[in-house]
Design a protein around this nucleic acid. Structure first.
Length: 462
RNA sequence: GCCGCUAUCGUCUAGGGGUUAGGACGCCGGAUUCUCAGUCCGGAAACCGGGGUUCGAAUCCCCGUAGCGGUACCA
């Protein structure tokens, strides 16, 4: 290639101090979408330089969450801790060039200084010839450091208000803002898409990059996500982690669609956008500037839409995996009658459990529906079903549908008792489909058993 | 305190000097004469406040206010 074009290289760089939460997932998604849209490289880097709080379990959780979301990475995961040698080399370099120095002041002295000055001007340390103390980067007193941000535009930080910040501990190990800048540079990251909470770190990283003589990447700081109360997302807000979303029966493609739309839109009124279309339309520069609140109700709705559009085979496979059932004929029947009703995979089980287990004992349903003419209804239903030679939904419907007219009862007075008889509850898929799905023998047995129960305990049922 | 970001229905958002301020979720009502869900139809619901600029401001400017983020030898 004669034309020099910088390759698009983006990274998602979580710190493994907890499970991947929804905000982090959205940041990962935006990076992934940007990479796939621009035919670039998506790199996963684990920012684990804080040995105290970083755990292997958390790393596994993050990888598992990204895998479940189907956000595949092209390089990594790279452990930031594994790059310690490179960080030390860079520290040595800025030390030797005089752009950084060991500070003679201890932590208490610095705290006292800041207390006195009210933190309204940047701290400047004093070089310590003995070479002990934290290593600080020299920040100019004059001028400003300007962040060119795809989303925020030009954000100006006055150098005077910036500290000579610590880039390495006294033992020479690099701190976050230094390590990030070095890694981004050496890994050839061309675009940094990350949470807004890093915007104020950016001038520091820019200063490090300048000290190293490296061109900075493009930045895009996306707004943070909040819970329904407007506060930072946490466990208190229900499903806060990707794992919780999975366990509640959401589909990864629905989660991607929903998360992508939290702060970004394709520019038209479309809300249901599959992943391919997301990739096609995504541009980090179009991400909005204000923070968004995670609304699980809308996710539920969206998930329901995706659930209903799944081909039955696919639906059965997903249900089998989620419910840990065999994807057999019975599950296929169950899914076919319940697909249009469930918003999440977790909602499926209560609708189809009657095909796997005896009717549940829902006292309220019994009290409400198993009274008055229920015994007569069940007797008539059993008679109508007993002699059927074919027991498909159509045959069952043909047999049961005339009952209200024949008995002179409202449809609800007829079908609810039958429903309670076969499922134990007042909520189920369509009654004809449900009866047929159970099979003639079992359906009759349950209806007759319910009839006997009413006859034996008329007062309890009434 | 200081630095920074943000501000349209409850929520996600579109729009952007003159509009009936549009859509989606949720909510309310109606329809689908088996429940629930779904689906369809209808409805209520918003430009943070104050000053400017202008014939005209939700839109541009300034100042407030509020929310959020940062302010570690954490990431």
């Amino acid at each position: 290639m004669s034309i020099e074009k910088r390759d698009l290289r983006v990274r998602f760089a979580p710190s493994p101090t907890g499970a991947l939460h929804i905000g982090g997932a959205r940041t990962a998604l935006y990076n992934w979408l940007a990479a796939r849209h621009g035919d670039g490289t998506f790199i996963l880097r684990i920012e684990d330089t804080d040995r105290e709080r970083s755990t292997a379990e958390n790393v596994d959780q993050i990888l598992e969450a990204l895998t479940w979301l189907e956000l595949d990475w092209d390089e990594g995961p790279v452990s930031q801790a594994s790059r310690e040698a490179a960080h030390r080399d860079a520290i040595t370099k800025v030390l030797e060039s005089g752009l950084a120095y060991h500070d003679s002041a201890g932590q208490e002295e610095v705290s006292a200084w800041k207390e006195k000055h009210g933190n309204d001007r940047g701290y400047r340390g004093t070089p310590d010839p003995s070479g002990e103390g934290a290593i600080r980067l020299r920040v100019p007193d004059e001028g400003e450091t300007v962040v060119q941000d795809l989303i925020r535009g030009e954000v100006i930080f006055v150098n005077r208000s910036l500290d000579d910040f610590v880039i390495a501990r006294a033992d020479g190990s690099a701190l976050y803002n230094f390590a990030v800048a070095v890694d981004d540079a050496e890994m050839g990251i061309s675009m940094v898409i990350r949470g807004d909470d890093h915007l104020s770190n950016t001038p520091k990283q820019l200063l490090v990059l300048a000290a190293l003589g490296v061109e900075p990447p493009t930045y895009a700081h996306v707004p943070l996500l909040h819970g329904p109360d407007g506060k930072k997302l946490s466990k208190r807000h229900g499903a806060a982690s990707v794992q919780e979303l999975r366990d509640q029966g959401y589909l990864p493609e629905a989660v991607r669609n929903y998360l992508a739309l939290l702060g970004w839109g394709p520019g038209d009124d479309e809300t249901l956008i599959d992943t391919a279309a997301l990739i096609e339309a995504f541009d980090p520069a179009d991400v909005g500037r204000s923070s968004a609140i995670f609304d699980e109700k809308k996710l539920r709705w969206m998930n329901g839409r995706y659930m209903r559009e799944l081909p039955l085979d696919e639906y059965v496979d997903r249900a089998a995996a989620f419910l840990e059932l065999d994807p057999d004929h019975r599950l296929r029947i169950a899914c076919s009658i319940a697909q249009e009703k469930a918003q999440t995979l977790a909602e499926l089980w209560p609708l189809i459990a009657f095909l796997y287990e005896p009717p549940v004992d829902d006292e309220k349903a019994w009290r409400k529906f198993m009274k008055d003419d229920a015994a007569v209804v069940l007797g008539a239903a059993a008679d109508a079903l007993r002699d059927l030679s074919d027991f498909g939904p159509d045959e069952v419907e043909a047999a049961l549908e005339p009952l209200p007219g024949r008995l002179g009862l409202k449809p609800g007075k007829v079908f609810q008792p039958i429903r309670v008889a076969i499922t134990g509850t007042s909520v189920s898929p369509g009654i004809f489909e449900s009866v047929a799905a159970l099979g003639q023998e079992e359906a009759l047995a349950r209806i007759e058993a319910a009839g006997r129960r009413i006859a034996n305990h008329p007062s309890a049922a009434g």
